[in-house]
Every structure is written in C-alpha cells, then in structure tokens.
Amino acid sequence: MNKLLSDFTVGESGKIIKVGGEGRIRRRLFDMGVTPGAELTMRKKAPLGDPIEITLRGYELTLRKDEAACVEVELK
C-alpha cells in the first residue's frame, strides 16, 4: 500500500517510491538521503504535532509535514 509520508503514524516504516515537490525542497530532500528506494521509519512527532522525525539511512532526520507530503512511501 502506498502512503504519503505526511500521513504516517509513529512506528510505521516503508520504502520511498517517489519524491515530488519542486526545486530547492526536492534537492534538499535528495541531498539528505530521501531518495526513491531508501527505507525509512517514522520515529515521532514533535510535541505540537509537526514537524516529524524519521530514521533514514542510519540517522535521524526531521522535516515538516508539508515537506513530508512530497514523499510517497510503500508501506511495509
């Protein structure tokens, strides 16, 4: 099942299918290792619900839901 990263609940993990968005944001996501094929796990939400923290390529990355909405993930 495919799902946007922004809709993930804590603890879910999956494999990135597609990275949308444009220009800067997309480039930044790529540079931080958010590329198709990478596996990630949603770790937690910030106390105010946004941003979120994910584990990816062995490190912790935080991004906002707006940016996470650019990432399509195949649920594991």
Partner: peptide, 9 residues
Amino acid sequence: PPFIMELPT
C-alpha cells in the same frame, strides 16, 4: 522556508 534537518546523536 523549509525545515529539513539532521538531528545529531
């Protein structure tokens, strides 16, 4: 602006 940042150990 976007917020895409590493959280160091």
